[in-house]
């Protein structure tokens, strides 16, 4: 199973970053009762747009099967703390206090 980080605009779901598509590396780990993401990204239009829309982001981990089909999505709430960028380390940090996991076809009975 492959995992990738996706950051969407929360208003209409425009994809701002796809770690696989954009060649961006990241780490994520538990942080207190939530999670923290460190995204290694160079300054540029992708970063600019994420920071411009930082209060309206949907942050996901997509998990894909060997054929590339997404079989699970994990969504992270980042509304408690705005993302920030450290230009010295080239790291975008996102902090999440809540996560929900779901699958294609959920809630369609």
């Amino acid at each position: 199973m492959q995992e990738r980080l996706r950051i969407h605009h929360g208003i209409g779901s425009r994809v701002l970053l796809d770690s696989a598509r954009d060649g961006v590396s990241y780490e994520w780990s538990p942080d207190g009762s939530g999670h923290v993401f460190h995204v290694h990204i160079e300054p540029g239009p992708i970063l600019d747009e994420i920071l411009r829309l930082r209060r309206e982001l949907n942050v996901f981990l997509f998990r894909d099967d060997e054929n590339g089909a997404t079989i699970e999505k994990q969504w992270f709430y980042t509304g408690d703390r705005e993302p920030w960028y450290d230009s010295d380390t080239g790291t975008l940090t996102l902090v999440s206090s809540r996560t929900l996991t779901y699958h294609p076809g959920d809630f369609e009975s």
Binding site: Y77, L100, P104, G105
Partner: peptide
């Protein structure tokens, strides 16, 4: 629209 999230709206 299939399953999708919203927050703070």
């Amino acid at each position: 629209f299939g399953a999708h999230p919203h927050s703070d709206m």
